[in-house]
C-alpha cells in the first residue's frame, strides 16, 4: 500500500472505497437474497421460460443483423476515404449515448403505426413493426449496432492495411481481399463486437418496452418481465436478475483480454 512517493492519502482512499462498495454491495445483496431454494421451481415457470427464450432469440437474431450491417459499415469507415466520413461516424455513434427510451420514441416516430415509414408500410402491406417480435429485434439492433461498428472499426484500424495492399498486388479484388484477408485478421474484434451486441440486446429495456410493448410470448423479454415482477413477484424478479447477472459475467470473461488488460 505504500510506495516511495508516500502513503496514499485518506481523502482519496475513502471515496475510492465508497465507490467500490456502491458497485459491489447491490450485486452481493442480490446474490444473498435470491430465492436459491425456489430457483428450480422459478426457472420452470411458464412466463419466465417464455421471456428467457424470447430474450435469447431476439438478442441472437439482433446480433446477426448487427454483424451483417455493422461489418460493412465499419469497413467503410475504416478503409474508404470519402467526404462526410466523420459526419457518418458521428451519426453512427449517437445511439450509443442516446437514452434508450428516446431511442424507443425515435423508433415509434419512424416505424410506428403512424410513423414516417410505418404508416405507408402498414397501408401497403397491412403489417407494422411495433408490438411484434420483429419490433423487439429492431429496437435491439438500433441500440446495439453502434457497439458493433465501433468495435469492428477499431479492429480494422489496428489490423494492418498493408495486407490489403499485398492482396491487391497479388490480384485480389477488394471483395476477395475483404473475405480472405481483412475479415480473418479482424476476427477477434468482430467476435468481440458480436458479444457486446448480444449482451447489450439481452439487457435492452427502454427502447424495447417503448417501441414493442410488453406482450408475453411475443415482446416480453427478460428485462421487461423483471420490471413487471419486482412488485408483484419479487422472487421471480430476483431469479431472472440472477440469470442476467450470470450471463453478464460470462460476457466479461469472454471479453477479458480486451477489457481487463492492466497496463
Amino acid at each position: 500500500m505504500s510506495d516511495t512517493l508516500g502513503r496514499p492519502p485518506a481523502r482519496l482512499l475513502i471515496p475510492a472505497a465508497l465507490g467500490t462498495l456502491l458497485l459491489v454491495l447491490p450485486l452481493v445483496a442480490l446474490v444473498l437474497t435470491a430465492p436459491w431454494s425456489l430457483l428450480g421451481e422459478q426457472l420452470a415457470s411458464e412466463a419466465l421460460r417464455e421471456a428467457m427464450w424470447l430474450s435469447v432469440l431476439t438478442a441472437t437474431v439482433a446480433t446477426a443483423i448487427c454483424l451483417a450491417l455493422g461489418l460493412p459499415l465499419a469497413w467503410l469507415l475504416a478503409r474508404v476515404d470519402f467526404p462526410g466520413r466523420r459526419i457518418l461516424r458521428t451519426l453512427v455513434i449517437v445511439p450509443l449515448v442516446l437514452p434508450p427510451v428516446v431511442a424507443g420514441v425515435a423508433l415509434v416516430s419512424a416505424f410506428g403505426r403512424t410513423g414516417v415509414i410505418g404508416e405507408p408500410l402498414r397501408e401497403a402491406t397491412g403489417w407494422s413493426l411495433p408490438y411484434t417480435t420483429a419490433g423487439v429485434i429492431a429496437a435491439h439492433v438500433f441500440v446495439s449496432l453502434p457497439f458493433v461498428v465501433i468495435s469492428i472499426e477499431g479492429a480494422l484500424r489496428s489490423a494492418h492495411k498493408e495486407y490489403d495492399a499485398a492482396a491487391a498486388t497479388l490480384g485480389a479484388t477488394r471483395w476477395h481481399a475483404f473475405r480472405t484477408v481483412t475479415v480473418p485478421l479482424a476476427l477477434p474484434g468482430i467476435m468481440a463486437g458480436g458479444v457486446l451486441a448480444w449482451a447489450r440486446s439481452l439487457g435492452e429495456f427502454g427502447a424495447t418496452i417503448t417501441f414493442a410493448g410488453n406482450y408475453p410470448g411475443t415482446t416480453q423479454t427478460m428485462p421487461t418481465l423483471i420490471y413487471l415482477s419486482i412488485n408483484s413477484d419479487p422472487e421471480a424478479a430476483k431469479t431472472l436478475s440472477l440469470v442476467l447477472l450470470a450471463l453478464s459475467l460470462a460476457v466479461l470473461v469472454v471479453l477479458r483480454d480486451r477489457w481487463l488488460v492492466t497496463p
Binding site: 498493408e162 499485398a166 492482396a167 491487391a168 498486388t169 497479388l170 490480384g171 484477408v181 480473418p184 485478421l185
Partner: peptide, 18 residues
C-alpha cells in the same frame, strides 16, 4: 493495382499471418 501484373516483395514480407 490488381490488373498491373506486378509481383511485389515487401521488406517486411507482409505474408498473411493467418
Amino acid at each position: 493495382v490488381r490488373d498491373r501484373s506486378i509481383g511485389m516483395v515487401f521488406q517486411d514480407q507482409l505474408l498473411f499471418p493467418h
